[in-house]
């Protein structure tokens, strides 16, 4: 296995996933397979290859600095689970 259970546990924590022991076992196997698959690229000689940031050979288009959006708060907050005084409410964040 190219990934250890500890590594998978770390990845799950970063992704905020709560997995059962069975799911861990399965994830270690499946994720290792994916990593092994991608690892084949390491065999290629990339000494003269520039790292690719994007598959398209194009350059970022720029937008003029103009305010084009209007206030749609009421409409957008219809999707929210909880709002108060214009704020989106979330479970208490402890700092």
């Amino acid at each position: 296995m190219s990934l250890s259970k500890e590594q998978v546990r770390h990845i799950a924590m970063l992704a905020r996933l709560k997995l059962t022991e069975e799911e861990y076992a399965e994830s270690v196997q499946k994720l290792s397979k994916i990593v092994d698959f991608v690892d084949q690229l390491s065999a290629a000689d990339t000494r003269d290859v520039l790292p690719m940031a994007h598959p398209l050979h194009a350059v970022q288009r720029l937008r003029p600095d103009v305010v084009t959006e209007t206030d749609e708060r009421d409409y957008l907050q219809e999707n929210a689970a909880a709002v108060a005084d214009g704020l989106y409410l979330v479970p208490k964040v402890i700092e």
Partner: peptide
Amino acid sequence: GASTAYGAAPNTQACLVDLGYPGVLPVLNE
């Protein structure tokens, strides 16, 4: 294209891109 003016009422200057809605794309300010 949402405004950056300071002191506006909460969430009145937060558009779909700022809210991270699916399907939106960021376009860089020149």
